[in-house]
Amino acid sequence: MTASDLPAAARDDLDAGLAALGLDPALAGPLARYLALMLRWNAAYNLTAIRDPREMVTKHLLDSLAMAPAVAGLPTLADLGTGPGLPGIPLAIATPGLRVTLVESNGKKARFMREALRQLGLGNAEVAESRIEALDRPGQFAAITARALATLPQILALGGHLIAEDGVLLAMKGARPDDEIAALPAGWALRDLRPLRVPGLDAERHLVVIGRAHSTNH
Rank of each mutant, 00 (worst) to 15 (best):
Q140M: 13
W41M: 03
R176Y: 08
N106V: 14
L169D: 05
L169E: 10
R197M: 10
L77Y: 06
A19C: 10
H60M: 04
A9Y: 10
D166I: 00
R99M: 12
A32Q: 13
T145I: 06
D12S: 13
G29F: 02
A189I: 01
V198W: 06
Q119G: 10
L135V: 03
R54N: 14
M67I: 11
A134V: 12
A213T: 15
L120N: 06
A203H: 05
T95C: 13
A148M: 00
G123E: 13
A3M: 08
W41P: 02
R40H: 15
A134T: 14
R131M: 02
R114T: 12
E165W: 00
G160R: 08
L6I: 05
A116W: 03
T101D: 12
G174P: 04
I155H: 01
Q154T: 12
R212G: 08
E165S: 12
A143E: 09
A203Q: 05
D178H: 10
R51A: 02
D24H: 09
F112D: 00
L39C: 11
A157Y: 08
A213N: 13
V127D: 09
M172Y: 07
L122Q: 06
G187K: 11
I144R: 05
L86H: 00
P90K: 02
V103G: 08
A28P: 11
T216L: 15
P185V: 01
L86I: 01
G187Y: 06
D178S: 15
L135A: 02
A92D: 07
P177M: 12
E129W: 13
N124I: 03
L120C: 06
T2M: 10
L201S: 05
L31P: 02
D24S: 11
E104M: 07
L37W: 00
L102D: 03
R118C: 03
L170M: 09
L152G: 07
K59D: 00
H206G: 01
A28Q: 13
E133H: 00
I210V: 13
P199C: 06
L37A: 04
A20E: 12
L23N: 04
A142Y: 11
L80I: 07
L35F: 06
G121P: 05
L77H: 04
L196D: 14
E104Y: 04
A175V: 10
T145D: 07
Q119D: 15
L77S: 03
M67S: 12
P153N: 12
P7A: 07
D15L: 11
P25I: 03
A44W: 08
L35D: 00
G83F: 00
S105R: 14
M172Q: 14
G121V: 00
P30N: 09
I210N: 06
G167R: 13
Q154E: 15
P195Q: 15
D13P: 03
A146E: 06
R212T: 06
L31S: 04
Q154Y: 09
A157E: 14
T151H: 14
E129I: 00
P7F: 03
E133C: 02
I144V: 07
I144P: 02
G187D: 09
T95V: 11
